[in-house]
Design a protein around this nucleic acid. Sequence first.
DNA 1: ACCTGAACACCGTTCAAGT
DNA 2: ACCTGAACACCGTTCAAGT
Lengths: 227, 227
Amino acid sequence: MTATRKGRRSAALSRERIVEAAVELLDSGGESALTFRVLTERLATGPGAIYWHVANKDELLAVATDGVVADALAVGSEQSPAGPEDELRAVALGLYEAIAAHPWLGGQLSRQFTRNGPVVPRIYESIGRRVRALGVPEATWFVTTSVLVHYVLGAAGQNAANSASARTSADGANRADFLDAVSTAWEELDPDEYSFARAIAGQMRDHDDREQFLAGIDLVLAGLRLS
Amino acid sequence: MTATRKGRRSAALSRERIVEAAVELLDSGGESALTFRVLTERLATGPGAIYWHVANKDELLAVATDGVVADALAVGSEQSPAGPEDELRAVALGLYEAIAAHPWLGGQLSRQFTRNGPVVPRIYESIGRRVRALGVPEATWFVTTSVLVHYVLGAAGQNAANSASARTSADGANRADFLDAVSTAWEELDPDEYSFARAIAGQMRDHDDREQFLAGIDLVLAGLRLS
DNA sequence: ACCTGAACACCGTTCAAGT
DNA sequence: ACCTGAACACCGTTCAAGT
């Protein structure tokens, strides 16, 4: 793992090796940890060499994002379980786990929605195929898939953000401590203005990530059966 | 409007004036348009003066985000319509319109989920109050509100991203042209790998933003009635 | 074709100094 | 208490020059 960190590089530079190193940096320190300065150091090269393989930082981030998502979705579709509902849950959970493992994915994915890249249709395809298999009317394919996609990415991103900020927090807190801090903050809000936020603060503290996440999927599935 | 753009500043500096100028810059050119360099120029001052009123750029962005969202939600709750369902639609649409008017809000809001700031409980409160009023069981308050919040922010952000990138696109395209380009790109994807994405490309091109957005809300509301 | 590395035009932020 | 503005330590990106 430390083999390429110092001294001359062992293998020729390639787009793949650059993306691989970028993902490592993103995983270890979030979006701000990926700079061309430390990237060139890690790869024992100069900035010009990287720009030979990659157009700019935006493209590098897009390729890294698409690669991680493609892997996550590929794993999800290997095991083809019982029916389309279970498949849908598996795909959603696969995305969830990927974002949990790479917290920077959350923000990056929401940025990719601006662009016309490959990752957005990839995600719509994975979720949408299962929506179609559930037999919902074609006229509602776009809406239902959109609801699912946005919920999956939003909820996963929020949870990943929690664990990410917990990881880098100064007070050495873990995820539970961070959730506890947020929950406590919500409980101390003004009782008149924030009666609801205060009421769910406890649920937020104690909730099991995956369980709640899947409960949300099931809620949408229930609504889907009626449309 | 151009009064404060050049020459000496007319009024004393204040947190409010700084935030106001920041929002103007964000609205006009997106997140990258907000720099301390042009901010000091607009306010006819030096960077040190801004740092006297505001801790750093992160705080400035957080305050700007919270301000715009607070305004949007205040407008939404003024008119208290028929029942909680209509109120929910009004609040959701209010957020939707705010993000459409300030496209940078989308990305900024997803970033605020990492932090323990005031904007996230504010949004949960507005949506959650109506969820509670619908009479759903307390045990599911957190999940149902989460589904709604993530869908609202995700869908609004995606649409805003569309119009935002359309606005700044080189080929002078408007929103319809941008959607058309994306739709065409999806139609040209591999038929085997992307059968679903190709199938909904047409719906994406022709869809009415608000109509589709509200259809998504209704889908969740339908699922909510069953839980 | 692929890589080097100095240089450019920018950032956010700090801080001694002024009023 | 509030503001000035030079300076610092960084960015992403370019490009003439090498192999």
